[in-house]
């Protein structure tokens, strides 16, 4: 259940931006997760929403972009997306390959909104 640890880390990163941007609030957070990271998106969303909610107010929405595993063959040079976790070149079958995508785990962007001033 490392999704909870991951959720805390995301919260800690975005918190820094709320403090820096006075009177602005985070509406949504977009993150990228590679399939090699073993993270369940639904679990991560549940954990993040649970720790970032304040009282009855929901916290920011977490939007997850999953990145497939793509590899480049060191023998024939072809780039392919692999299904499952069979780490060989789809073109020539060689196992001498380099992982290009699939290890991502980062916060890509945050969407901020400014609190409206209530005129008296």
């Amino acid at each position: 259940m490392h999704e909870l640890s991951i959720a805390y880390e995301i919260n800690s990163i975005i918190d820094q931006y709320v403090k820096a941007e006075q009177k602005k609030f985070i509406k949504s957070v977009r993150i990228k997760i590679g399939k090699l990271q073993n993270i369940l998106p639904d679990s991560l969303i549940f954990c993040f929403e649970t720790i970032s909610a304040s009282g009855n107010s929901p916290g920011p929405k977490l939007e997850i972009e999953q990145v497939p595993i793509t590899v480049e063959c060191n023998k024939c040079g072809s780039v392919s997306e692999i299904e499952g976790f069979a780490f060989n070149c789809i073109n020539c079958g060689d196992t001498d390959i380099k992982v290009i995508t699939g290890n991502e785990l980062f916060v890509k962007e945050i969407e901020l909104f400014e609190e409206e001033k209530n005129e008296v």
């Binding site: 991951i6 880390e9 995301i10 990163i13 931006y17 602005k24 509406k27 993150i31 785990l105 980062f106 916060v107 890509k108 962007e109 945050i110 969407e111 901020l112 909104f113």
Partner: peptide, 10 residues
């Protein structure tokens, strides 16, 4: 509304 790109490793 504004979008801020941060690209930070979790």
């Amino acid at each position: 509304m504004s979008l801020v790109t941060i690209e930070r490793k979790i």
